[in-house]
Amino acid sequence: MVGLAVVLGWFRPYETAGATAVATVLVVLLVRELVGRLMRRSNPQMAVAARRLGSVVVALIGGTLTLQALGASPDILLLVIGVLGATILIALREPLGNYGAKFFSEIYTPFKVGDSIRVQGFAGKVIEINAMSTILLSDDEQLISVPNVAMVRDVVVNTSPQAWREITIPVAVASAVDLPTFESELRKSLTKLRTRLDPRFPPFLTTKARSPQSTDVLLTVMLRRPEDRDAITLEVNQRVTEVLQRVRATRA
């Protein structure tokens, strides 16, 4: 992209800036596709986040080059972005840490709202997981707020019966994807794993949130044997991604 900007620098600034912007969009699309392919076996939510992060980084670089083509000093732009970023990180260190911890705990920590857990000497039923903390309701009806960072730093014990069986995977189903078709196709795909899953509990989706862009659902599968947890999680993630892509392509 830098080379392209130099070559185009011979032309007038507006044409150069326009071409850089177009190139940036193309590279963003390319990065999204590449990251998506590389993370096929990862959690779908992680893959979405990685695609988004890659796109933002490329867009920032492309935006800087575009502004440079229009005559702005890149050094000053980079300095402004750096200072702003550092300020935000320092000012919001705690909340961002909790938010980040929530993101990771949502994906990798084996508990959800409704489960009973024990963490940092506290025990209770999880009644809320917000951006900052996880709220527990203790047996004596006290509300306990545990910062989300504790959920990734400390030992968390899920004391719900049969908790080891349950794997929950958050999935964002874009509004371009037909949810009934996605669910139906996913169910068919996961049927291939039925000998590894609890026969009493077929996979099912729970709707968590809706927005004009997507429907956030939680996929729950129940294991037959605890030692399969890691392998099944990977396999289910891969199948979710495949089915999402297939259904999206069919609809397109």
Partner: peptide
């Protein structure tokens, strides 16, 4: 676990 059940859920 049948395809029919996928249709039912659909």
């Amino acid at each position: 676990w049948s395809e029919a059940f996928a249709a039912y859920e659909y």
